[in-house]
């Protein structure tokens, strides 16, 4: 199961003028893997994620996402990935149902499919009581769970999560990770950034970005072994402390 590669980059770079925001990163992510993409502020995570989502073109290097070329097939990439960020996820002034229908619609799902998926989703999330309520009236944790479910409604091959659990209470945060595990078990690759270092432990593999480059990439256990530290927190601190770059 872990052999099928869904993300492959080779010397992928993005320059803004003379500044190399992303500097020759090469890595592979497998089907059904939970891949932690860590790095300090300004390390180049956001720029790299944008390229992988087909939102911006690289300056040089190669990459294929879900089997599509990152230069020529950005539209196909967008159809086969899901995306969720802390900042934008759902329309606050639409109801739960309306949000699900809308996002199902823009991914081209058939009306019957949307209908059945909406029902099962609302059921599974335990939101039957609030399905007609505006999203803004829901607690943050619920919103984030709903946003994640909506992001994988069209069964994408990969889902990109940009700090999905920021500010969420500890129990909901864990429920959120349950959802991530479920998705991974269904074969969806999860590509996630986080500032919670305990969450790095939940990933199958973790990459650490420093100054635009991937400085380390391995399983959390292996990383701790290599750097001889007790926790991912300390591994991260050791790697990121050496960063030269100060600004975004």
């Amino acid at each position: 199961m872990r052999n099928e590669i869904v993300i492959k980059t080779q010397n992928l770079s993005k320059h803004f003028g003379s500044f190399a925001a992303v500097d020759q990163i090469s890595f592979e992510v497998y089907k059904g893997e939970i891949f932690g993409f860590l790095g300090a502020n300004g390390a180049g995570k956001t720029t790299a994620m944008r390229m992988l989502c087909g939102l911006s073109l690289p300056t040089s290097g190669q990459a294929s996402i879900a089997g599509f070329d990152i230069y020529r097939q950005t539209e196909s990439i967008k159809k086969h990935i899901g995306y969720m960020s802390q900042k934008f996820s759902l329309y606050e002034d639409l109801t739960v149902i309306e949000n699900i229908r809308f996002f199902g619609g823009i991914y081209g799902l058939a009306p019957e499919v949307i209908k059945s998926k909406t029902e099962s989703l609302v059921e599974r999330l335990g939101m039957s009581q609030v399905k007609m309520q505006l999203v803004k009236s829901l607690p943050l944790g619920w919103k984030q769970k709903l946003a994640f479910s909506v992001a994988i409604l069209h069964q994408p091959q990969i889902v990109f999560l940009d700090e999905p659990t920021g500010g969420v209470d500890p129990i909901t945060r864990r429920q959120f990770w349950d959802l991530i595990y479920q998705a991974a078990d269904e074969g969806i690759t999860v590509f996630v950034t986080t500032h919670y270092m305990d969450e790095a432990e939940y990933c199958h593999r973790v990459s650490m970005m420093v100054d635009g480059q991937i400085k380390a990439l391995d399983t959390p256990a292996q990383l701790k072994k290599i750097y001889n530290e007790d926790s991912m927190d300390e591994v991260f601190y050791r790697l990121a402390r050496g960063a030269k770059r100060q600004a975004d």
Binding site: A40, G166, H195, D233, Y237, A240, R241, A243
Partner: peptide, 10 residues
Amino acid sequence: TTGVDAVSRK
């Protein structure tokens, strides 16, 4: 420290 990386937080 919200949204700030672990190094800056420390």
